[in-house]
């Protein structure tokens, strides 16, 4: 039995964006279920996908890699994707891997909607 909790806390869809809020550590344990959920959402081809990491205290390369793959899917159909609410610890993983230059990283949802 798969007892891995899904760390997707909320999915909100509007005309302008789909916002996916995560909650909990994103590591090798949780990345597969996160990947499956985000792929499913990306398959709906939202024009703008916003991933809210405000309640993610920790992320490793498994989580970052999952977001990279989703970014590639979204940009492939000409959509946009933004990350919001990164704490310094999570942001540093994007900086160490130099992926911060590929992602749109915003402080707030409104800022992501305005970009």
């Amino acid at each position: 039995m798969d007892d891995t909790p899904n760390i997707v806390k909320e999915v909100r869809k509007s005309e302008t964006a789909t916002v996916v809020a995560l909650s909990g550590d994103v590591d090798l344990h949780h990345a597969p279920t996160l990947h499956a959920t985000l792929v499913n959402i990306a398959n709906g081809r939202p024009k703008r996908l916003i991933v809210d990491l405000g309640e993610v205290p920790y992320m490793d390369s498994s989580g970052v890699g999952t977001l990279v793959e989703i970014l590639r899917r979204v940009t492939a159909y000409k959509g946009t994707m933004a990350l919001i609410g990164l704490n310094p610890r999570v942001r540093s993983v994007f900086e160490i891997t130099k992926l911060d230059k590929f992602f749109t990283i915003c402080d707030t949802e409104q800022e992501a909607l305005d970009t």
Binding site: S61, V64, V68, V93, T97, K98
Partner: peptide, 17 residues
Amino acid sequence: LDDLRPGGLGVHIIKTV
């Protein structure tokens, strides 16, 4: 790291920190 792809980041992180 100039490529945008998911894998192969673990050792880079270890080396860096």
